[in-house]
Design a protein around this nucleic acid. Structure first.
Lengths: 207, 207
DNA sequence: ACAAATACTGCCCATTTGGGTGGTTACTTT
DNA sequence: AAAGTAACCACCCAAATGGGCAGTATTTGT
């Protein structure tokens, strides 16, 4: 039996889902709430296996709510449900512990399937969201900063916290030789110190 | 009409897929290859919409092949097909431009569905792989480094390349006040300089 | 063959950094 | 009331960093 909580401020939507899910023999909707705050008071989170959580809620935002929910029960599978699918919110929710992302346009069958999948180690997502998530692993095409092999290696060593001297030993160059490369790296990345270079390199997935 | 290439060294698997896909009225398998090298010689990559690419191949590994394929045609949707689903390969392939990840155990219907989805902006993935991808956004539970608000803010400013002096102006503290926080950050992160701190913070998703 | 680019090395110098130590205030804990 | 702590500020000092400039060896393009 999979125990479900629903947190969604639209009454019709909430009750619609509830009805659909409760019809399934192995699903049980424990409770419905209109806001995160109400859900926290309900104290049923530790009993839940899957939580359907709206993003846009009165009071606490769903993307923040998921964090608190996961602090109360780490094993619960939180599924965000949303009409918008803007990148920032998606990634914030995922970072805070959501494991899936559904559109509010889901059909009843898809909803049931998503709950099952979420409970069995899957991560239901609508196709375009899946693509966005996947794309975030790739380098953005317009920012193709082309570092040489030595530059990449030096940058990696910088990110590990090495000093110029330390790096020079690793790559068999003089300290000034290392500086030469670092200056070139700074030019290519348009930065002017180590930390900014490392931050940019990691964000652009160069190292 | 969706044009498909198949790169897979197992003859039976390859031909099985080919038959299944070619039966669909809107799918057409342009060619089948046993290796990446063979596919590159075939010169049909620019004509393809979707490519099914095995991971474990004789000669060039699929995870590297995808990179070259995407250099030849950026718009092509490359779907990795694999028996293993170890993390390292998954993320390497995705980083190199793959947009989906199928298990070799897919049913014919799932395969057809995956090709359609891949072509229409989706990212087909088997459930456990999707979960791994999603989990990679989250902080690993054992490394919960708890930074204070000021520390987080200082760390962010460091990652932007600010000097202590620059940071002190932003947070309305003395330079030594900033140093106080930075020392605490170094202790918590177990590092001893800016770049390493920034690298660790980004990798652990603290900022 | 010659100019240009690439990949270093070397040195000067001001600024930044990291480590150590010590002090103040405010707020808890016991 | 005493002890502890967190959150600052301050000063010393050596090492690391970043920018500028000059020079050399090798490779590359024409």
């Amino acid at each position: 039996m999979i125990n479900i909580l629903i947190i969604e401020d639209n009454k019709y939507m909430r009750e619609g889902w509830s009805t659909v899910l409760d019809m399934e023999p192995d699903l049980k909707v424990l409770a419905e709430y209109e806001s995160c705050e109400e859900a926290f008071e309900g104290n049923l989170i530790p009993k839940a296996d899957v939580i359907l959580l709206d993003i846009q809620l009165p009071g606490m935002h769903g993307t923040d709510g998921v964090k608190i929910i996961r602090e109360k029960k780490r094993e619960v599978a939180v599924l965000m449900v949303t009409i918008h699918d803007d990148d920032e919110r998606i990634f914030k929710a995922l970072k805070n512990g959501a494991i899936g992302y559904l559109s509010k346009k889901v059909t009843p069958d898809e909803l049931i399937e998503a709950v099952h999948s979420a409970h069995h180690g899957g991560s239901p997502m609508s196709p375009n969201i899946a693509r966005k998530v996947i794309s975030s692993f790739q380098q953005s095409k317009d920012s193709i900063i082309d570092l040489s092999d030595t530059e990449t290696q030096v940058l990696k060593l910088l990110a590990e916290g090495n000093s110029y001297k330390g790096i020079s030993k690793e790559v068999f160059l003089s300290v000034d030789g290392v500086r030469y490369h670092i200056r070139n790296i700074y030019n290519k990345l348009e930065v002017s110190n180590k930390s900014e270079a490392v931050a940019k390199a990691l964000r652009e997935k160069l190292i």
